[in-house]
Amino acid sequence: MESRDLAFGSASARLSVNTRSDSSERADTTALAAVAGGDRESRSAVALRSARYTEIAESWGRGLARVAAHYSRSASEREDLQQEITLAIWRALPSYRGEASLRTFAYRIAHNCAISHLRRRRRTTTVEAAEAVDTAPSAERVLAREAERQRLLHAIAELPLGSRQVLTLHLEGLSYAEIAAVVGITETNVSVRLTRARKTLRERLGAPS
């Protein structure tokens, strides 16, 4: 079993990723052996993979972590999905050929992981226990803000999947073209879904039109 510590989200946030796939272990072992043996091409490939991963982690890591949060119902579920996204990006980087931007590439992987996560969740009846909340009087204002944030996250999580996908990516600053590339729809459909998502959120949160 291989253990790889990968930075994700910020310099202070690190995930310990355990990979158990025999084929992945063999592939990584082969790459490392090639580097140790002085294979210049393999060394270059590993360096490029690491550089691209670092760029993703530093530039969009926090956003990718928020994507995981939008598709999770608890802290432990969010951490599991975030780790899954991290590992999926690392494993997919050797296949990156520049057909899309690195940001689109990373968010597409996060999107696919989130969809797979939802499908698995539908097949299980396990529900995570809600985390305890500190109710100290001195933290009333902080708790009020957190309650509003949780209310918004819950409302987003209850949106139809198509609307949730485009809204989550839009909140992370992706353009209509990038969202269309990630989700696999037209820019016109992105606009339609965003309009529906905003309308639904206003209705559920009681916000003025």
Rank of each mutant, 00 (worst) to 15 (best):
L81D: 02
Q83P: 11
Q83E: 14
Q83G: 14
I85L: 09
I85A: 03
T86R: 09
T86A: 11
T86D: 09
L87S: 14
L87H: 09
A88L: 12
I89Q: 04
W90F: 09
W90E: 10
W90S: 10
A92K: 09
L93K: 06
P94C: 01
S95I: 12
Y96K: 00
Y96W: 02
Y96P: 01
R97N: 13
G98Y: 02
G98F: 02
R103Q: 07
R103V: 03
R103A: 06
R103I: 06
T104P: 07
A106W: 01
A106C: 01
A106V: 02
R108L: 06
R108M: 05
R108Q: 06
I109S: 08
I109H: 07
A110Q: 04
H111V: 07
H111M: 06
H111P: 07
C113N: 08
A114D: 01
I115L: 15
I115N: 11
S116Q: 14
H117V: 02
H117F: 08
R119S: 13
R120S: 15
R122E: 12
R123M: 11
R123N: 12
T125C: 14
T126Y: 15
V127P: 10
E128S: 13
A130T: 10
A130K: 11
A130I: 12
A130M: 09
E131Y: 07
E131A: 04
E131V: 07
A132D: 08
D134T: 06
D134A: 05
T135P: 08
A136V: 14
A139L: 15
E140M: 14
E140L: 11
E140S: 13
V142P: 14
R145E: 14
R145A: 15
E146M: 09
E146Q: 11
E146P: 10
A147R: 05
E148C: 05
E148A: 04
Q150C: 08
Q150S: 09
Q150R: 08
R151H: 04
L152Y: 05
L152D: 03
L153D: 05
L153K: 08
A155E: 00
I156A: 03
I156F: 01
A157P: 04
E158I: 06
E158C: 09
E158P: 02
L159M: 00
L159D: 00
L159Y: 01
P160N: 01
P160M: 00
P160W: 01
L161P: 08
L161M: 03
L161R: 03
G162S: 07
G162Q: 09
S163I: 12
S163N: 14
S163D: 12
R164V: 00
R164A: 00
Q165S: 10
V166I: 02
V166S: 02
V166Y: 00
L167M: 03
T168D: 04
L169S: 01
L169E: 01
L169N: 00
L169D: 02
H170F: 12
L171T: 09
E172F: 06
G173N: 05
S175Y: 06
E178F: 06
I179Q: 03
A180S: 06
A180K: 04
V182G: 07
V182P: 07
V183I: 04
V183T: 02
T186K: 07
T186A: 02
